[in-house]
Structure formats: structure tokens, C-alpha cells
Simulated scan of single mutants.
Amino acid sequence: MTLVAFRYWLAGMSLALATLVTPLSTAQAISPLGGPRFAAVLMDADTNEILYAEQATAIRHPASITKVMTLYIVFDALDAGRLRLDDRVVMTPRAVSQRPSKLGIGVGQSLSVEEAISVVAVKSANDVAVALAEKVGGSEENFARLMTAKARQLGMRQTVFANASGLPDPAHFTSAQDIAILSAAMIRHHPDRYRCFSEQSYSYGRLRLANHNKLLGVVPGLDGIKTGFTNDSGFTLTASAIRGGRRLIAVVLGSPSGWQRDRDITTLLNTGFTALDIRRNGGIEDMPALLSSAGFTLNRSLRPVPQLATLDVEEGDGE
């Protein structure tokens, strides 16, 4: 067995094991009233301490946050010398057929790996994510196995990846805590390449692509990381900010609107840094009380689910 074949076998075994121990039911991620369930985590990226959690390990759909792992695998390949930034990524029929958000170039056209990374990080292009997966893994299916194997290696215990984009698939799921673990690993293991998530816009040819993460340049110290939206997932975001030499990661899944998601992320980060200041001054923080006083709604996963806001995109990931 070749090394590549062994890696695929190992990834497949990881996927099979995850399937045995983690239920695949979409009902776990969707409320009885038909909307995505809320989940949130606030984590100290330096110590991995969970400062606040609601439904942290419950099964959820990540939407385009998936692409953090997609790029993680690409960055690993670059670091190992199996891929170069000037290599060409060719758009295949499968890649071109993906639903929006997408770059929209045709079959047979190509872009460099370096361009593809920025397009995926900023535009969240599903078509380019799939083309990158095919470039690195030979097929999107094999690439998804590599993603799941990497998830296990990082300690992500509630995650199975079925594709490189985050488009809806009942076999594609994660948890808020796992997304926080992934975000911390990206920052720790690929600190230079992580910067692509902080680009507020990217120019591809004559196109100017705006980042879906509207908190960049607004929330002090925030330098990433990735948004997402599907009907199954609701509005999702993993965000990281650094202040005073300390870094926090906030994850929100299953929000009914982009506005609410962004507000919750902002409150989690601001409150988290306040809690760290209280500790630094010798006090003992009460995170639920601090969050509540800042306007954050606690125990949201137990409440009726608001109707999702609508986006002017196809049923797929608009972010």
C-alpha cells in the first residue's frame, strides 16, 4: 500500500468510526419547530479554556465554516511541498456545478492556488473550494476523508466532513466546540497563512470580492475567521480577536439572522476580554452575569426558534 493510499484508508476508517459513534440525524441540528438550533462557544485560544458554552458539543451544521478545514488541508499540502502557490487549479464540471456562493468561471478555466485561497477565504466560493479539493485530494470525496481524519487528529470529536464547501449534506456535521478547536489550530499551526481570513476584500481580475465577515475592521482586534449560511445551519460564524496580547475565539451556530449572529459574536468577544481583565486584577468573573448585563440572551437553545432571515441567493451557502 502506498503512503497516499494508506492516508485515504486511514481517513476512511476515521469517517466510518465517526459514523458509528455520532448520530447522523438532521433532527439533532434542527429544532422541532423547523429552525436551526442555537449553539455558542467562547474559548481562550492561548489555553483552550472554554469561558462560555451553550450546546457546545451538540451536533450542528457548519455551512461555509467548513472552508476553514478545506484551507487547513491546503495549507498542510503547501507546507509539505506537495502543492505550490503558483500551481494551477482547473475548474471541473463538478466544481462549476456547485451552488452559490461561487466565483462563476467556466469549465477548463483555471486560477492559481494563491488566488484560489483568497477567493475561498473572502468570497467563500463553493466552486473554487471543490476545485481545490480535487487538486489536493484527487476527488472531493477523498478530500473530505482527509478533512475528517485531520479533525480527529485535532481532537474534533463531533465532526464528520462530507464535502469541501459546507453545502447541505446530512452526513456533514460538527459542533461549536469543534469549530473553536479548528479555529485555534488554524491560528496556531498556520499563523502566516491565517492572514487570508482577515482580508476585507480581494480583487480577482476586474472583480472586487467583499468579505462576508462584516466584523472585520469594526470589532477591535478581530482578524478573522469565517462566516456561513444555509437553511439547515442558520447563520454561522467563527471569529477571533486579539487584545492586550490575549486571543479569544467566539463561535455562534444556528442564528436566525446575520445581524443577530454578528451582535452575539461581538458581545461574546467584548465580554470575554472584560472577564480576562477581571481575572488579571485578581477578581472572579461571572460569565453568565456579564453576558446577560451586556444584552446577550442566555439559554437560547431552549427557546422557540425565530424564523430565518432570507437571502437573495439560491438554497445553498450565501456566505
Rank of each mutant, 00 (worst) to 15 (best):
G228P: 13
A171V: 00
V4T: 12
G35M: 04
I225Y: 14
D87Q: 06
R300I: 05
E141K: 03
A210W: 13
G205C: 05
Y194R: 08
D169Q: 01
N213P: 14
Q200D: 00
M287E: 01
I225K: 06
T22G: 03
I225E: 13
T66D: 04
G234A: 09
T236Q: 12
K123L: 15
A121G: 08
Y72H: 15
R261F: 14
D86V: 09
F38S: 07
T148K: 05
Q55E: 15
M43W: 06
N163H: 01
G138E: 02
S292P: 00
M186R: 07
T274M: 15
L311W: 04
L216H: 14
L167G: 04
L15W: 11
F173G: 03
T26Q: 03
M69L: 12
T297G: 11
S97Y: 09
F197N: 04
L222Y: 08
D192A: 11
V107D: 11
A309M: 05
S201R: 10
T297A: 14
D87R: 05
E134Y: 05
K102Q: 12
S301F: 02
A5K: 10
M186H: 11
P62T: 05
S233I: 00
A133R: 01
R243V: 06
V107A: 11
E314A: 15
R195P: 00
G34Q: 04
